[in-house]
Nucleic acid binder design. Sequence first.
DNA 1: TATTGTTATACTCTATAACTATA
DNA 2: TATAGTTATAGAGTATAACAATA
Lengths: 151, 151
Amino acid sequence: MNQPSHPDSPGFRRTSRSLPIALLRARETVMGPIRDMLSQSGINEQKWRVLRVLDEEGPMEQTALAARACLLLSSLTRILKTMEAEDLLSRRVDSADRRKSIVSVTDRGRDLIHRHSPESAAIMQRLEGRFGADRMEQLLDLLEELHELEP
Amino acid sequence: MNQPSHPDSPGFRRTSRSLPIALLRARETVMGPIRDMLSQSGINEQKWRVLRVLDEEGPMEQTALAARACLLLSSLTRILKTMEAEDLLSRRVDSADRRKSIVSVTDRGRDLIHRHSPESAAIMQRLEGRFGADRMEQLLDLLEELHELEP
DNA sequence: TATTGTTATACTCTATAACTATA
DNA sequence: TATAGTTATAGAGTATAACAATA
């Protein structure tokens, strides 16, 4: 059996045309060099996303941060604990609503981000060079629009 | 500090224009209903990808399967062991090269895939209806081309 | 009562390396 | 020597639920 059992069934697209699989495979292609970069800093993808979101959007509460960084709140709780111990960010209770805690990047966290700026830019430029700047913009537009679909 | 520390630095794009983050967020949007579907079958995303790839591309060795399903070979070894016990697939030693083992879907595995065909189609059609069929095709083209970049 | 965040549990994936069998 | 797959381990994320504090 070397042929799919439903070559053109309406139920499934080819896996290369399955959006979830295509997104994952594309991401694997992109993440290779970025993982190499991050592993040199003792930081992983998840912590990196937390720092990037905070650096970009400023201090925010954890529920919002979890959503922006694509993490469960319970995963974020654990991650923030170690990042706070590493002095990459700080938390303070929201004075207006004391259930909330507001997370901010520290100078040390910002430093870590910005130290990677040149290498990050180089990685993206290399990718853009091979893929095409126009198509890169097109792709980012489509991904952003897709993400905004959800209610 | 409610502004990013580098609003237009060359090193970083906005996270919504960061390809790795944009790919992840878009995937989260898409996977919601699919996870609901799979959880009713006692199967997870990884097993689902393994079945989809095998069903589409036919029997193949594990190294190739791992690459196609975006899994590490060591993760695949464990997954295949339970899937074989569940009679979703079978393995046989390659007679030409006895280091290799060839993995095939069983009838039961194919059944499981095809049982989800209508619901899977409905999920994709609903998404396409909101996102636009043309843009969906465009997006899949770009993702496929991006994935093929890798040497 | 509902929300924010924490903790706990069980399961799974990742990353790495050492190991075997075969080539 | 190199390759295909297995096993072991440590670390981390996922999914879920129960929980405390606050609203």
